[in-house]
Design a protein around this nucleic acid. Structure first.
Lengths: 142, 142
DNA sequence: ATGCAAATGCAAATGGTTCGCATTTGTGTT
DNA sequence: AACACAAATGCGAACCATTTGCATTTGCAT
């Protein structure tokens, strides 16, 4: 995976400490983060940033497709993750909120079939799986 | 499909004009509606209701699984539809927002396979298709 | 017809996100 | 290395969808 620096260069974005830090945090996170999650993590590391800057940086990243904005069932906030290069789908743990990305897709054939059947020109789909990851499964059954 | 009256009876909910009207509007709609959409439609029909009541009625209906709350890519509001009895997935027109519900599911096998592979206990999934319905496809290509 | 829990209206509060504007900073150019 | 200027940032206020508190009304079992 690209380094945060490379990501910014690639999109002609200025390399600011804030932007690099946000990319680094997202890169190291195994779950989605809200703007406020990022803001608080940065405060913890003594990065002086304002919440509106976090929002603006994320807006820029989403526009450039460096970051994806995600809606999940368990939160009404918009959550963010580093964008994935390959098409795939997510396994989301409803207990700890960990996310695993699976680069595989079971719906393309179905998509063709229903495009035909319903005369719909399907452009994309959104498929997420919700359940318990192995740790939470073990923990909750004990 | 059940009548609005039956739906309320079935769940021991008082039959108020507001509730019946909301169910009727949702029943007749071929797309998702926001609380505010419902509020405005009711005002148009001279139903005197307050927006907070619309929210409270919807909250009750969602709790009873009479109505589903839906998040879609093109709106940050929560949208509502009558709940479907059978499992299926939606084709959502990104242009006119019409929704077609397809009572078929292409992912169960895949779900079993990845449950195994990632040791995830998958409880449910969310799959929506976005594209153009036949009318919009025709209209936009002309 | 009566009583009471549930439903409603209204206004205020909330929470996430966006915006306006003054100030600072990164970076290409001299 | 200093300059210039567009872009990035901080701060607070604004915004919008949704929720809540509380006083009043209403459906419905008795």
């Amino acid at each position: 995976m690209k380094t945060p620096e490379k990501m910014l260069e690639l999109h002609n974005l200025k390399k600011t400490g804030h932007r690099l830090m946000i990319l680094t945090i997202l890169k190291e996170s195994d779950r989605f983060l809200s703007a406020d999650d990022l803001y608080m993590k940065m405060k913890e590391e003594d990065e002086n940033i304002s919440l509106s800057t976090v929002y603006r940086i994320l807006e820029t990243f989403v526009l450039k497709s460096i970051v994806s904005a995600v809606n999940v069932e368990f939160s009404k906030k918009v959550l963010y993750e580093l964008a994935h290069e390959a098409h795939g789908h997510r396994l989301i743990c409803t207990n700890c909120h960990k996310v695993v990305y699976v680069e595989d897709c079971p719906v393309h054939n179905f998509e063709d079939a229903i495009s035909e059947e319903y005369d719909f020109d399907i452009k994309r789909h959104k498929l997420d799986f919700y359940g318990l990851c192995s740790e939470c499964k073990a923990e909750l059954s004990s």
